[in-house]
């Protein structure tokens, strides 16, 4: 189970609204390489993990991804506070606003709703862990792209933190994969 902690993993205090940036960052909420995909991918895959190392890695990284989902939602929420009609129109936000207002809806930057086909969960541990290594790199690339588009230091600071975590998760998944391959390569005695 999970108990809620009334705090973010990393502080977010964004002073200036920016609906254009909000839409771009929303992709890390409900896009293919976003935090919803990441958390549900790992937390679903963990049931098929064979031993203590792989179970704990999937469980604990999956849990951190939930905290990142909350952070991305917070960024989008703070970037869309108190928007004027003009800001909505000028910021290219009207197409999102018409359906959702300034609520958080899991979709990518182009408005495509989140879909379970963004994740995979198989009984093959090597397939799962290899997918996760790619997933972390893809998420890292999306954060790199966001950093290229961002100019607000309040936003850049948080995105850099999230980007760095993808690198750490990649490292842990790599160690888990090596551990599993070592196990499988062991000579079997019957």
């Amino acid at each position: 189970m999970w108990m809620y902690e009334k705090k973010l993993e990393y502080p977010i205090k964004i002073k200036n609204p920016d609906p254009r940036m909000a839409k771009v960052i929303l992709s890390q909420y409900g896009g293919p390489n976003g935090e919803m995909s990441a958390s549900l991918r790992y937390l679903s895959q963990r049931f098929a993990m064979p031993d203590e190392i792989t179970k704990s890695v999937l469980n604990d990284i999956g849990t951190e991804e939930l905290a990142h989902l909350e952070m991305v939602g917070t960024i989008v929420h703070q970037l869309t506070r108190n928007l004027s009609e003009d800001e909505i129109k000028a910021g290219g936000f009207a197409d999102y606003y018409v359906d959702y207002g300034t609520a958080i809806f899991p979709a990518n930057a182009a408005g495509v709703p989140w879909n379970a086909s963004y994740i995979n969960s198989m009984s093959d541990v090597i397939a799962n862990l290899t997918e996760n290594l790619a997933a972390e790199q893809k998420a890292r690339t999306v954060y790199d792209n966001i950093l290229k588009l961002a100019d607000d230091p309040d936003v850049i600071d948080v995105i850099k933190f999230l980007r760095e975590r993808e690198v750490v998760h990649f490292q842990r998944f790599g160690e888990a994969l090596r551990h599993v391959t070592d196990l499988k390569d062991c000579k079997k005695y019957y």
Partner: peptide
């Protein structure tokens, strides 16, 4: 938390 992830694999 970061040490916890490290300890999971070490």
């Amino acid at each position: 938390y970061d040490l916890m992830l490290y300890l999971d694999t070490h």
